[in-house]
Every structure is written in structure tokens, then in C-alpha cells.
């Protein structure tokens, strides 16, 4: 799991925020702190589906479920359905 956390953190820093130097860990609030916007959140959701090899159901996920990297993986574990 920690590898997946690290992979996601690196993705957010490098590809979403474009700030590799920013301090980020699995408990850093992303949405509520305004670090990422809704469009960036969509990119992160898609990455989360790829990393966890799941499909997240539309209508069940809200930004507050994706506020930290830890929460993202908890949400994927709770709601994600295995990909066919």
C-alpha cells in the first residue's frame, strides 16, 4: 500500500500540481486546502482507478472522499469494483 501511496503522491506533485518540490504526504489535505481544483481531481480519480485496478462508481464519490491520499485509497477500497 505504501508503494501505491508514494506513486500517487509523486503523480500529484509531478503531473497534477507541477511542483515536484512541494511538501506532500498521505495525510495532506488537497481539496479542502485548495491545493487542487475539481478538474485536477478528475485526473487524480482516473489515476486512482489505474493504480488500484478498480472502477469507481459515478455518483458515489465526492471531493471530500478524496481530500487526502489516504482517504482516496480508503474510498477506492470501499467503493471500487474490480475491472473486467
Amino acid at each position: 500500500m505504501s508503494d501505491q501511496f508514494e506513486q500517487m503522491i509523486q503523480y500529484i506533485k509531478r503531473d497534477v500540481m507541477r511542483r515536484p518540490d512541494v511538501q506532500l504526504d498521505e495525510a495532506t489535505p488537497l481539496v479542502s486546502s485548495g491545493l487542487i481544483d475539481s478538474l485536477a481531481l478528475v485526473d487524480i480519480l482516473m489515476k486512482l482507478e489505474d493504480v488500484t485496478r478498480t472502477r469507481l462508481p459515478a455518483g458515489k464519490i465526492q471531493p471530500k472522499d478524496m481530500d487526502t491520499v489516504q482517504l482516496m485509497f480508503a474510498t477506492a477500497a470501499k467503493l471500487g469494483k474490480p475491472r473486467k
Partner: peptide, 22 residues
């Protein structure tokens, strides 16, 4: 954002769909 954009944007993949949802 929570009840229209997010659910709609997750129905399909692709940049064009994200913009359509927006």
C-alpha cells in the same frame, strides 16, 4: 461540483468528456 460535474465526468474517460461535463 459534487452532484452534477463529478458524477457526470466519471461516466466516461477522455479529455473531451471532462470538458463536455464542465
Amino acid at each position: 461540483r459534487d452532484y452534477v460535474f463529478m458524477p457526470m465526468t466519471m461516466l466516461r474517460r477522455g479529455r473531451w468528456w471532462v470538458y463536455t461535463s464542465l
